[in-house]
Simulated scan of single mutants.
Amino acid sequence: MTSIEYIKEWLNANPFSWNVIRFIAILIVILLAIQLIRRYLKKRISNTAIRYKSQKGIEILGYVLLIFLAITYFSGSIKDFTIIIGLFTAGLAFTLQELILSIAGSIYIFLVKVYKPGDRIEINGIKGDVIDVDSIYTTMMEIGQWVESDNYSGRIVKLSNAFVFKGPIYNYSQDFPFIWDQFNLPIRYGSDMELAKTIVLKIASETLSEYTKASKSQWEAVVNKYYIEDAEVGPTLAIRLTDNWVEFNLRYIVDYKKRRLTRHLLHDNIRKAFETTNGKVVLASTTIELIKIPEQKVQSEEAKKTQ
């Protein structure tokens, strides 16, 4: 008996195995077709957002097609198909629970719109911009860590989609793409405080006018959508007295991606304005007041010998 005849005899005796082999071949063809279509779209579509959504749509459509083919392909050749599928599903749920939870997380992300590519989020202690969401992982460009402020660290992080069910998700850009920021200014005692307040609020209003105007309508939409109290989106100033200086606390709203640049502009403009007051407003620094210097007696060796 030749090898070909032996294979034919084996396939006739094991029809289910032959069906599995044919299904694997179909599976490979479909997966290759998905990859070819994705590459074609990547070359033909120049717009980044449209290209990404098209590729993602083809990927999801391919997975749905594979599931449909698997059910229809085997249901006609296996007796008690529902029992077998039930046992198979139970085994998968036990052994691949993390993977299944990740796939469920991806469906939840897309349906509920927890976040999308382009959003800045913080999840599981990792903060960054979402650059891709697939059926298992969320890919982020990390910000922070050893880099000060909200700047990219250069690391790309892949995070399981299962984490959407395991903890809070902080979204910097959904519904309201602005955040509140603040910093403190130490003003020396004896400075013209009214002049200092006028300068700080004027510079803040001029520098932040674009953000204040753009955020008002969006904040109104947030208030109407959620059970939340209205808030002041314009810059505000609070004063606190300390042992060494009068502390000005400036609070303001800013685009979530321009926090560092805006703080730099505010600091620089306020410094320049204070320098033009001819000493009426002076920034303070830490001071130490000596109440009493203890007396010390120093005696030379010759004096000791004469005693």
Rank of each mutant, 00 (worst) to 15 (best):
D268E: 08
N249V: 09
S102Y: 02
V64M: 09
R38V: 11
Y152A: 10
D132R: 01
E59Y: 09
I199K: 04
N14T: 01
I293Q: 12
Y256G: 13
I199T: 00
A33Y: 05
S173H: 10
E194I: 08
V112E: 07
L69N: 10
V64E: 07
M141Q: 09
Y137F: 07
I21V: 10
N269T: 09
K225V: 06
E220F: 15
V112F: 13
Q174N: 05
V281K: 02
N151M: 09
T286K: 09
A25Y: 08
A196H: 04
L237I: 00
E5L: 11
E122P: 08
R39H: 13
F68C: 06
V130D: 14
A273D: 02
V223G: 15
Y40K: 06
Y40D: 08
Q174R: 09
L265Y: 08
K43C: 10
F68L: 03
V64A: 15
P168D: 15
T138I: 01
L66P: 05
I143D: 10
L101W: 04
L237D: 15
G91K: 02
L65K: 01
D175P: 11
L92V: 07
I293S: 15
W146I: 07
L66K: 04
K166G: 12
E247G: 06
N224M: 03
V223Y: 08
I126Q: 08
K158M: 12
P117N: 10
I100C: 10
V29E: 06
Y63N: 01
G128C: 05
F16P: 01
L61Q: 12
S102P: 04
A13L: 06
L208Y: 06
I37P: 12
G167M: 10
G91E: 03
Q307F: 03
Y137W: 04
A238W: 04
I85V: 12
G144D: 00
G234S: 06
T198W: 03
K127Q: 13
P168C: 09
T242C: 13
N269G: 12
L185F: 02
I288M: 03
Y73N: 01
N47S: 07
R22F: 14
S300V: 05
S106Y: 00
E194V: 02
N171A: 14
A303P: 01
Q174F: 13
S75P: 02
N14L: 02
G144N: 01
N278E: 05
Q145K: 02
D268P: 04
L69F: 15
Y63L: 12
S153C: 03
E122M: 11
A214T: 01
E148T: 00
N161L: 07
K304N: 08
A33R: 03
I103E: 09
S209W: 01
L96N: 10
E206G: 06
K258G: 00
H264M: 11
K257E: 15
F110K: 03
R188T: 11
R240M: 05
I187F: 00
K297I: 14
S46H: 02
I131V: 11
R22K: 12
I109C: 13
I4L: 11
I26Y: 12
Q97V: 07
